[in-house]
Each structure stands twice: as C-alpha cells, then as structure tokens.
Amino acid sequence: MFLSSHSPALRPETAVLLVMLPLVPFGEVAPDALNNASILALQRRLGPAVRVLKVDEASHPAVVRSFGTPALPACVLVRQGVELWRHEGLPEDESSVNTLLQAARAQPQAR
C-alpha cells in the first residue's frame, strides 16, 4: 500500500480515501488516471482533511474484495471503519472533489 503523506500517524478524526486500483497484467502500464502523480495531485487538492491511500488489487486482493466494489478503479472514503462516501474512478472534477470533502467533514452515522 502507498500512503501519499509522510505523517507519522493519523489522528482518529482523519478521513482516509482508499483508492483501489485494478490488477494490471505484467508488462502493461496502468492508465494515466491511476498513476502516482495523479493520486498525489488529488492528495494536494484534498489537503489535510483527507489522507489518500493507494490499494493495489495485485498486492492486496483481500482488502479490495472486502469493499465489494463492482468496478475498479474505485475510491472509498472511511473514518474509523465507517464508510462515508464511494466513487467509481478517481474523483478528478471539482464537483466530485467538493462532495468528497463534504463527506469527510460530516460525522459518521452510527450503525
């Protein structure tokens, strides 16, 4: 997994955006939207409110499967184990980023 920030530990109130990436067959290159530069750019847009964590299906298939995402790439925003938001693909447009930030600021609903 790849944490796009070098902070030593996350505070409990920090929301984490899991960017789940599909398995890319050996020798193939992931689409541009999925490269580390794109993910780091998203982290800069989100600021300290959200930490972005890249989860590769090839390295962590059980983690990716546990979220039951029907299509990859997908993003799932969680805080303390509670899902706050889900999006197919990388949220690149302003509307998606704003919705993600609003979800990160919301209080998780008790289950």
Score class of each variant (00 low, 15 high):
M1V: 12
M1W: 04
F2L: 14
F2H: 14
S4A: 13
S5V: 13
S5F: 04
S5L: 11
H6W: 05
H6S: 10
S7L: 13
S7P: 00
A9C: 11
A9L: 14
A9D: 11
A9V: 13
L10A: 13
L10P: 02
R11Y: 03
R11P: 00
R11N: 08
R11H: 08
P12G: 06
E13K: 03
A15I: 00
V16K: 09
L18H: 10
L18A: 10
V19C: 15
V19Q: 11
V19F: 10
P22D: 02
P22L: 00
L23S: 12
V24W: 05
V24S: 03
P25G: 08
P25W: 02
F26A: 12
F26E: 14
F26N: 05
V29R: 15
A30Y: 00
P31I: 03
P31A: 11
D32P: 12
A33I: 09
L34Y: 06
N36R: 15
A37M: 08
A37I: 08
Q43K: 08
Q43I: 08
R44P: 07
R44Y: 08
R45E: 14
R45T: 05
L46P: 05
G47A: 02
G47H: 03
P48N: 07
A49L: 12
A49M: 09
L53M: 12
L53T: 09
K54E: 15
V55D: 02
A58L: 07
A58E: 10
A58H: 07
S59E: 15
P61R: 08
A62R: 12
A62S: 12
A62N: 09
V63H: 01
V63Y: 00
V63K: 00
V63I: 10
V63G: 04
V64R: 06
R65F: 01
R65V: 04
S66F: 02
S66T: 01
S66P: 06
G68F: 03
T69R: 14
P70S: 03
A71W: 05
L72P: 07
L72E: 02
A74D: 09
V76P: 05
R79L: 10
Q80A: 15
Q80V: 07
Q80E: 15
G81P: 06
E83W: 00
L84A: 00
L84M: 05
L84V: 02
L84Y: 01
W85R: 05
W85A: 09
R86K: 06
H87G: 01
E88N: 06
E88A: 10
G89K: 06
G89S: 04
G89N: 07
P91I: 02
P91V: 03
P91G: 02
E92I: 10
E94A: 14
S95V: 13
S96M: 07
L100R: 01
L101S: 06
L101C: 08
Q102G: 11
Q102N: 10
Q102W: 07
A103I: 04
A104D: 02
A106G: 04
P108A: 04
P108Q: 03
P108C: 07
Q109N: 07
A110H: 08
R111F: 10
R111V: 08
